[in-house]
Each structure stands twice: as C-alpha cells, then as structure tokens.
Design a binder for these strands. Structure first.
Lengths: 169, 169
DNA sequence: TATTGTTATACTCTATAACTATA
DNA sequence: TATAGTTATAGAGTATAACAATA
C-alpha cells in the first residue's frame, strides 16, 4: 500500500473575509471541510482508509492482502466454514470469493474438503503451514492497531468498537 | 448502490464443542467473527460500507455519486478551491479527479476559472444551478445520517466523530 | 527544481447474469 | 423452487509514469 500524505501546499494569496461568493475569482487559503467532517460517513471513510493503509503495510510481509488475512483468520477460527458464510462475514460477493480462495489453495494455505451434510458446499480448512502464518499475522495486525491508538484510554478504544458495531451489526 | 443483506442460512448440522480441529470435516453452525470484530480496521470497514450504502441511495435522486457530492459540497463552501486542494481533502489522486470535474462541468454544475495568483491552477466554482442542488443534497445526506443514529444519544454521536477524527486527522 | 493539471494506461475491487449440481 | 459454488464479464475505483505550462 502506498501511503499518501496531504500535500498541504496552499495558495499564499490573502484570505477573503466572510462567505461572500466572488464575482470574479478568489484563492482559497485553507480548505474548510467542516461540513463533511460533521458527517459520519465521511469520517468513517477517511478513518477506514487510514487504518487499512497501516494494516495493509504490515500484511505485505506475509504477502497477504487485508481481505486475504481476514479470510484466513476466519477459517482458522471456524474450521469447516463455507464460502457462503465467509461472504456474509466479509461482505463480499460469491463470484469475487472464488478467485481469492483459489489463490490461497494454490499457495498451500487453504484446503477444500467436502461438507459433511451438504453436498453442494465445501468446508474450508487451514493447512498446517497456514496455522503458524495466520497466528503470526494476527499478532502483527493487533500490534499495528495498538500503535494507532496507543494514546487512547481503554474506555475510548472500547467505545469506538461498540459504536461502530451499532452501525453495521 | 445495491443493498446486500446477509443470507443468514447456516448449516443445520449439530455444532461441535470446543475449538478442536477436525480430523475429517465439520460444519460451522454460526461463524465466530469475534477476533475480526475486535479489530478497529474491520469494524471501520463494515461500518463505512453500511453508511456509504445508505447515503449513496439518497444521492441517486440527484444522479450524484458520494465522491461527486463531497466534491460539490467542498466547492460550495470553498469557492475558488483548486483541484489539488480537493485531492487532499478527499484523499483522491489528481489523475482520478480530472474526469470527475470534467463530468460535473459538462453537466453545468461546476465551473473552472483562472486562479488569481497561480497561472498553473484553476479555481473551481459552483454554477447558480448547482447551488440549489448541492444545498438540497446536503440536507438529504444529513437526514440519512440522522436516521442511522436516531436512537443514539447526542453524546454518543459527538464522541464517534471525535474518535474517528483522531484516526485520520 | 518543484508543482498544477492533464493524458494514457494498468491494476484492483466490486457487481450482474447465468450455469451445474444439490437441497 | 431455492441455494452453494462457479464462470464469464463488465463496471467502478485506484494506481503509476510522463508531459506541458508555470512557480
């Protein structure tokens, strides 16, 4: 993942007072994003991009994308889980799940076995090789999250998760 | 935006006790996403997708994508803002901004005028026609956000925004 | 030498339709 | 008739390199 920093290079032109619309042209000293920042959707997207970027960098060491990590972690904790269940848990569509699973099977990290009671479905399992890798990746993700909120109180961290879950659960 | 509901159709097979790894195969009654849900990044993504979906539906009435709405709102409140400044505020890359602005100019919602002090840059302005549309769209977005957190306390709403902004500001 | 806006282009992510095997 | 997994494909979103004009 490429980290993009805000350039922060603004026009040096004198700021115009008030909210008057220019008859001709005017320069903007600093962008007022106050309205957008008052929106939960905007802040969610910006925060999500920021967090995802940091975590994605950490996962590069394992040659895993965030979605692949999430999938492997779910399979590790839910051996025998089906593709369909993963789609629901990760908010992905079935056609987009196929290639992801194929790739991980091809790398020897994932295994498909017949479902014990549903002939249409396949149960997914981590290979022995993947067990260690997933465990290590989970620890790295937790470490990167911890670093992001290192100056937060425990109550703040807990409340953020609770509020976010109220939005999607 | 297409709203996708979780299927919620799980295997009817008897759940297996404990966390034992199956020698053969096993069915997963309900997926345990507890670990992922303990991650801020995962919850941010899920919450962001949920909120964006609702807002995107509202913007369909204006034939605006979320990014287009955000851009127009910023221009309305920052007349004369440059493309580069918008890129920083919206976390978009310059090459991907060009087509967006072109489309809005083509629809008669946006106008490019020469920058007063920087010959390289162009200042962006809403057209008279866009002023009303943007104002109406802003109200709709606020209404949809209000509906999403209608059962929340004012303190909860305020704190969510503050915590999110600590993550990306 | 650095920055703004731009073109061209490639890559990733997400979405829809349709098929098969099974429930 | 409905669902799980799959294929093919299209569309949206995001990325890099490079160029002209200007700072």
């Amino acid at each position: 993942m490429t980290v993009r920093k805000t350039p922060g290079s603004f026009s040096r032109t004198k700021a115009l007072a008030g909210k008057a619309r220019a008859a001709a042209t005017q320069a903007v000293e600093a962008v007022d994003a106050g309205f957008l920042e008052s929106l939960i959707g905007y802040s969610l997207r910006r925060a999500s991009l920021a967090m995802t970027g940091v975590s994605a960098d950490r996962m590069q060491g394992f040659d895993l994308k965030i979605a692949e990590f999430s999938l492997l972690s779910l399979v590790g904790r839910n051996p025998g889980v089906t593709s369909r269940q993963l789609c629901a848990a990760l908010d992905l569509l079935p056609p987009n799940m196929v290639g992801m699973i194929d790739a991980l099977v091809g790398r020897g990290l994932l295994e498909r076995r017949p479902h014990p009671s549903d002939g249409r479905a396949m149960g997914l399992y981590l290979t022995a090789q993947a067990e260690g890798l997933v465990h290590e990746a989970e620890q790295q993700i937790q470490a990167s999250e911890k670093a992001a909120v290192q100056h937060w109180s425990a109550a703040e961290q807990k409340q953020l998760l609770q509020l976010l879950q109220k939005l999607y659960r």
